[in-house]
């Protein structure tokens, strides 16, 4: 859902999905409040935060919905995915289980979300590289096969978190402006720090 608002040029809804404990809530708090809490409580139901960003000349409000990893039932999924303009599927690079669940999350968003909604696959906790269970190549291959973008983040180190969201938002706006020509005035999109988008190489260097 991309809405044109009086106050904002655009309001978009993003959703964060993935298994419990992969760090979704911390990605959210890092992105919206620049906070990290290693002892954050388990999300029950849904959490929600917003952030206003500037893209080119456009002011945009992002509504980010963060769901409990264990929360998977119909009443919720409907409200949750309805109108989502993009999704971040998060897994923990130290947990093979959380990576194995990606397929199921993907299926769910494709089932309940709008068709063709842009999705970015996020491997979180890359600061814990000594505990890595999911090789980059495996994740990249999976992303490639499912036409997703892949990025690795660390909410703790505040690394690539911005990029992950920006990357998703770029995708959304690009696909949106193809439909609505009037928005095209803000294309080509330029984030203030474009170099951030070279995240993949960055990950490789770190690891």
């Amino acid at each position: 859902m991309v809405t044109i608002d009086e106050e904002f040029d655009m309001v978009i809804k993003l959703v964060l999905i993935g298994d419990t404990g992969v760090g979704k809530s911390n990605l959210l708090s890092r992105y919206t409040r620049d906070e990290f809490n290693s002892e954050s409580k388990t999300t029950i139901g849904v959490d929600f935060a917003t952030r206003t960003i500037q893209i080119g000349k456009k002011k945009m409000k992002t509504q980010i919905w963060d769901t409990a990893g264990q929360e998977r039932y119909r009443a919720m999924t409907n409200a949750y995915y309805r109108g989502a303009a993009g999704a971040l599927i998060v897994f923990d690079i130290c947990s093979l289980n959380s990576f194995d669940s990606i397929g199921r999350w993907l299926q769910e968003i494709r089932e309940y979300g709008d068709p063709g909604v842009p999705i970015v696959l996020v491997g979180n906790k890359f600061d814990l590289k000594h505990l890595r269970q999911v090789p980059i190549s495996t994740a990249e291959l999976f992303a490639h096969e499912n036409s997703l973008k892949y990025i690795e983040t660390s909410a703790l180190l505040n690394s690539n978190v911005e990029s992950a969201f920006q990357f998703l938002i770029t995708e959304i706006i690009n696909s949106f402006s193809q439909v609505h020509k009037d928005i095209q005035e803000c294309t080509p999109l330029t984030f203030e720090d474009r170099s951030d988008l070279s995240f993949r190489r960055k990950c490789c260097v770190i690891n």
Partner: peptide, 17 residues
């Protein structure tokens, strides 16, 4: 505003948060 969005936590935790 669907009540599920804010209410699940209210009920499940008996307002514990």
């Amino acid at each position: 505003l669907s009540p599920q969005v804010y209410g699940i936590r209210w009920i499940r935790l008996l307002f514990g948060r």
